[in-house]
Computed example of a mutant assay.
Amino acid sequence: MHTDQLKQEIIQYSKEIGIDKIGFTTADVFSELKERLKRQQELAYQSGFEKGSIEERTEPKRLLPEAQSIISIAIAYPSRMKDAPKSTKEERRGIFARASWGTDYHHVLRNRLEKLEAFIQEKVNDANTKVMVDTGELSDRAVAERAGIGFSGKNTSIITPEFGSFVYLGEMITNIPFTPDSPVEDSCGDCRKCMDACPTGALVQGGQLNTQRCIAFLTQTKDYLPDEFRTKLGNRVYGCDTCQVVCPKNKKVDFHIHPEFEPEHDIAKPKLKPMLRISNREFKETFGHISGSWRGKKPIQRNAIIGLGHYKDTTAVEELIAVMNNDPRPVIRGTAAWSLGKIGTNEAYEAIREAMNTETDEQVLFEMEKGLAFQKEVTTK
């Protein structure tokens, strides 16, 4: 079968199985990305979650020696929650980023790509393929950009003409030499709304992200959150959407095409206090099917504790005291002490002082001192 005819059949089949956009590119080296990744490494801007070496991430033939082409796919997800539950003074809520609403997209996209893979292998006997979604070596965004899915915006997201940047990306390397598609023209222009809105200044310049300052990354870390970022976190328990929400290209974008990605209210916007006492089993049963659960409950709990401090939620004081006194994890005890200080009731300060008499972990004691310092700030104002 001629590859151009096969390409058209693949495009048609992709629509039938719920792929919103598909593009084709060569398996050539991603030379520009390679230089950018080297620069990121030199500046220590990487997250540490990246898979593979810089060579593996930019040279498709290292992953599939006979590689000729890469097929890129995009699937749209919602940007707005219908009838979203509101936070109340008695029940404050956190928020998961939109990319973590509904079923874990890794599973959904992999399923679609495997169907596409089976379709191709049925048509071409000697077809060789390798499927990747986010956790693979290749940069989903670099592939999507070169395959004409969209352009890479200043917020480092792929922005599609149809769905804005609210799309999940995946790809398939293959030994079939498809005719490549043309890239989409960058249309950010002089706009810098995402850079100006970034809460931590993580967007160093258009298209360059210091991941170590990005709230989306910081919500996934397991250690203490550095002080300068705690007040920036707000009620986010996982991820950050600010640079996408402010983007003019996303102004009226809200697609509800795939039921799997519809947000479940109490999961996408969970009540914060119950997060403090959730067991591993309950966490897995409740949140295990969403992508935001991949790091386990500890980062989510730490962020929930900071969120309660952000709200100055006096109704949470008793539970935070219990966490500070009883949780076996120093990071959780210390963060609870900091949050109690932030809430700032007399009961909270008294509990911190009392806990300091029995606490033995130096970092937790340091966090307790920070908590008490809030009281000094109030009295000196």
Rank of each mutant, 00 (worst) to 15 (best):
I278G: 05
I10M: 15
G207I: 06
I73Q: 02
E228Q: 14
C240Y: 01
I120S: 07
T380Y: 14
E318L: 02
R93C: 04
L340E: 06
P259H: 11
E369L: 09
A76V: 02
D241M: 08
S182Q: 14
N175L: 01
F178P: 11
A44F: 12
V184N: 03
I267N: 04
I352Y: 05
Q205F: 14
L308M: 10
K123F: 02
I176G: 06
L138Q: 08
P328L: 03
T221R: 13
D266K: 14
N111M: 13
M275D: 01
A142Y: 08
K61C: 09
A74P: 06
V237W: 03
E359Y: 07
T286F: 01
A355I: 07
V108I: 15
G296C: 04
K249C: 07
H265P: 11
G94S: 03
I305H: 10
M368C: 10
S47K: 06
I22E: 11
G94Y: 02
A127I: 00
S157P: 00
V133Y: 05
I149D: 02
A373V: 02
V143W: 07
V245R: 12
F366T: 13
D126W: 06
E145A: 13
F96H: 13
E318S: 13
Q208A: 04
E347T: 13
D190P: 00
I17E: 02
W338E: 09
M1S: 12
C247M: 03
P78F: 00
Y311C: 04
P78T: 00
M356H: 07
D83W: 10
E137F: 14
T174C: 11
D28L: 08
K130I: 11
T358D: 10
F166H: 12
H310W: 13
Q12W: 09
D4T: 10
V237H: 02
V124H: 06
Q5A: 12
G18Q: 01
I11M: 12
T156E: 12
E90Q: 13
K269G: 05
H106M: 03
F163Q: 04
L365P: 02
G164A: 09
S293F: 09
Q5H: 11
M1G: 11
T103K: 15
R146E: 15
N210M: 01
V323D: 03
A44C: 10
P226S: 02
K61A: 10
R92M: 11
E285P: 08
G309T: 03
I176Y: 07
A142D: 14
T286E: 06
T219N: 09
K376S: 14
R192F: 15
S69Q: 06
P259A: 14
Q5D: 14
D186W: 08
K381T: 13
M324T: 00
T335F: 03
I352P: 07
C243N: 12
L113S: 04
P65D: 06
F151M: 00
M356G: 14
P330V: 00
P328Y: 05
A316Y: 05
V184H: 02
A144Y: 13
V246K: 03
C214D: 09
I257G: 06
F151H: 01
Q121R: 15
D181H: 08
L276P: 03
V108T: 04
T231G: 10
N326H: 13
V378G: 01
N303T: 07
G309Y: 03
D313Q: 00
Y238G: 04
S139V: 01
V184P: 05
G206A: 08
